[in-house]
């Protein structure tokens, strides 16, 4: 059976090419974008201003590419974790986090992850594949609360900068007038600091950027995050200093606090030194222990003390409220390892 191409996740330029390839008038591309991203149709036959003949031609080669979630779990705090099956039969998760003044969706950008951070569940399932822009956006439009969303964070499974082409495509669709027409200020993309891709993201997107720091000390960060061997945190910060982010675009540093590891006053002072003068903020995150991890979370008291040290140095610091812990939807807990088949062709 011929595998059909997917329409959802194509940019306006790509839709123009689709229209051209099929011999449709040029304006059909805009109509397609309208149906896909504004009217949010669930089938090609719902695209009523495209002629029946052209819809039939379209259906021969293309699918819409939307897929419903397979499972949803709800936390006692209202957080919901959605499980999706991708087009290639793999699984990803997205977390819906409602709060008083905003409803945030945390989306995945890859199935699994290559980065191997010591404290993260996703890395333990290995890397399976990059998500397409359509698969990233599908998480947004296929959850029950799709109309209530106010904010989007790329902080689910995967390293967004390791799949930057598709991440940027998805952002273009979300923020373009012909797409979802969201303000880029409602979107935050995280990275562990893959410097070349981060540069491209800064230059080609207007969205906020969150850097996973987790330690200001090279040797210690290497133990927590192998990426430090290649792109040390001071290089990441030096790169950020080269850009003018304006007053509206936000740079934040994510800092998971591990008891007795990175939660001392010296660490806080080192962070202050490292980001001195950079218009940014620090988010302190409570660590949710994961199986077989040598790490434990810092106490609330220690986190408050750490916050005070940073604030006394003039750094805007927040302690991120933990959400969805009981359904493993909290930061660093997204994983579909149990759903991943064991591969028999391992070389180790």
């Amino acid at each position: 059976m011929m595998v059909k191409e997917v329409l959802f996740g194509k940019t306006l330029e790509e839709l123009k090419q689709v229209a051209k390839d099929l011999g449709f008038p040029g304006f059909v591309a805009k109509q397609l974008a309208d149906w896909l991203y504004k009217k949010k149709v669930t089938g090609i036959d719902e695209m009523l201003n495209i002629s029946k003949k052209n819809r039939d031609i379209l259906k021969e080669k293309y699918d819409l590419g939307l897929s419903a979630y397979n499972k949803v779990q709800e936390s006692i705090d209202g957080t919901k974790k959605y499980l999706f099956k991708t087009i290639s039969d793999q699984y990803i998760e997205a977390a819906y986090i409602p709060s008083e003044n905003r409803n945030t969706l945390c989306v995945s950008s890859q199935v699994g992850c290559k980065m191997g951070c010591l404290f993260c569940m996703t890395g333990k399932q290995g890397f399976q594949k990059n998500l397409s822009a359509g698969e990233i956006l599908n998480q947004m439009v296929s959850i029950d609360e799709n109309d209530k969303l106010t904010n989007l964070v790329y902080m689910g499974m995967g390293e967004p900068m390791d799949n930057l082409d598709e991440v940027l495509k998805s952002l273009e669709i979300i923020t373009s007038e012909w797409g979802f027409a969201w303000s880029p200020r409602r979107i935050n993309v995280s990275t562990i600091g893959v410097v070349p891709a981060m540069r491209r993201f800064i230059e080609e997107s207007e969205c906020h950027l969150a850097i996973s720091m987790h330690s200001p000390l090279n040797d210690q960060r290497k133990e927590l995050m192998p990426i430090e061997n290649v792109y040390p945190i001071e290089d990441v910060i030096q790169t950020l200093r080269e850009y003018d982010f304006g007053r509206q675009r936000r740079i934040s540093f994510e800092y998971i606090m591990f008891e007795g590891v990175n939660d001392s006053k010296e660490h806080a002072l080192e962070i202050a030194k490292l980001i001195n003068g950079l218009h940014s903020r620090v988010n302190l995150i409570k660590f949710h222990p994961i199986p077989n991890s040598p790490l434990k979370g810092s106490s609330n008291e220690v986190m408050e003390r750490f916050k005070n040290v940073l604030e006394n140095k003039g750094i805007i610091t927040t302690i991120r409220k933990s959400r969805g812990e009981d359904i493993y939807a909290a930061c660093g807990l997204l994983s579909t390892k149990k759903l991943v088949e064991n591969k028999s062709n391992k070389d180790y």
Partner: peptide, 11 residues
């Protein structure tokens, strides 16, 4: 101890 483990990842 995790302090004694250094990892380089090919990505």
């Amino acid at each position: 101890d995790f302090n004694n483990i250094m990892a380089e990842i090919y990505f």
